[in-house]
Design a protein around this nucleic acid. Structure first.
Lengths: 195, 195
DNA sequence: CTCCTATGTTTACGTTGTTCACATTCGCTG
DNA sequence: CAGCGAATGTGAACAACGTAAACATAGGAG
């Protein structure tokens, strides 16, 4: 079943296949493009089969969105990878910048995936769900609060300002990504940003 | 026809009636709730009638969104009304704050309207379109750039920083509004914000 | 080997956006 | 005032969608 070309009645791992097909559709056309019927069609399966793995169309979209969110986390992690400054303070700042850069890079490089990642913008227990974590086992939101916690630990940020700072950072970056993705801003350059 | 209770074949001003019905639906359920058929149903008219006034379903949603955008401008104007500080610099700052407060107040008070106002987030000639202007004849984006231009005029902001500042302000406020509306943040208090 | 259960299919229903041929009315021209 | 063209609304139809119910098939536990 693992090298599955045995096109038999049972698929083997339809749930993963549906997620993959859905992600492909999302990449091309955003959340609205990942329709239940087209997703099942791509997986070579009947529409109703999806209901064995997802409670509803929205549930499928949320699952695809969670996968996209995990890729967002990976994008942030990749942008943080070069944070090798010997100075702890500078390194902490680099990692915070990495959050913003990775967030915005993902939104610009894969607007469709970004769109579905923000689909039904978290019930927020969602923001800590395991399936939205990147390779380091942290969600995008956790990567942000981690970076800010580092600054607090170095005395660069007052503890009681950590939470407001998180909200402000996230707002700015998210707002910029939104405006740049589906808004009036379309420039190619990777703009330097504050965070 | 003006005091129209003559329920005749022709409606009189169906376009306005559809916009009103659509706005009502948007207030209750956001952009997705303003469906072509339900809108025409509320206006007491057949589905196809909408196509005499709007090119498509999306076109109808955009038009309702423009109306919501105009209300957003009015919300900003209302929050700027109390900017009566004798000191010009303080007054300019008050007006900038008014932009942010009005924006966020609108998003929190009428999330459905805010949602459809951001629907198909501007082709950006849209952001200067007359139908998105408030009572002072300015669009929300213009109200922001106006406030920043005042700061420049008073020497409080360097001219070459006006445009980046506009983007940053808008990003922050928009991001916060988005996160507060459809995101994880749900507090009642009107938080004080920087801008 | 047998049966239970998980998984996929078929068919059907209601709703949506959209189009086309047709009906009705408004307002202008003669 | 008569009548005609243009504007506006209707009705029926189509394809695509999400969803549900009854049925078919296969895989694994006993």
């Amino acid at each position: 079943m693992e090298a599955g070309n045995t096109r038999s009645y049972h698929h083997g791992d339809l749930r993963a296949a549906l997620l993959a097909a859905g992600y492909e559709l999302a990449l091309a056309g955003g959340a609205d493009a990942v329709t239940l019927r087209e997703t099942t069609r791509r997986a070579g399966v009947s529409p109703a089969a999806a209901y064995r793995h997802f409670a509803s169309h929205e549930d499928l979209q949320l699952a695809v969105g969670a996968a996209a969110m995990a890729d967002l986390a990976r994008s942030i992690e990749a942008h943080q990878a070069g944070a090798g400054d010997p100075e702890p303070a500078a390194r902490a700042r680099q990692r915070l910048i990495g959050v913003g850069d990775g967030y915005i890079a993902f939104a610009l490089d894969a607007p469709g995936a970004f769109d579905i990642a923000m689909f039904g913008l978290f019930t927020m227990e969602h923001a800590f769900a395991p399936e939205t974590m990147g390779d380091t086992g942290r969600t995008p939101f956790q990567l942000l609060t981690d970076a800010l916690a580092d600054l607090v630990g170095l005395g660069l940020l007052r503890p009681e300002q950590a939470e407001p700072a998180a909200i402000t950072c996230w707002s700015t970056v998210h707002g910029f990504a939104t405006l740049a993705t589906s808004g009036p801003l379309r420039q190619h350059p990777r703009p330097e940003l504050d965070a």
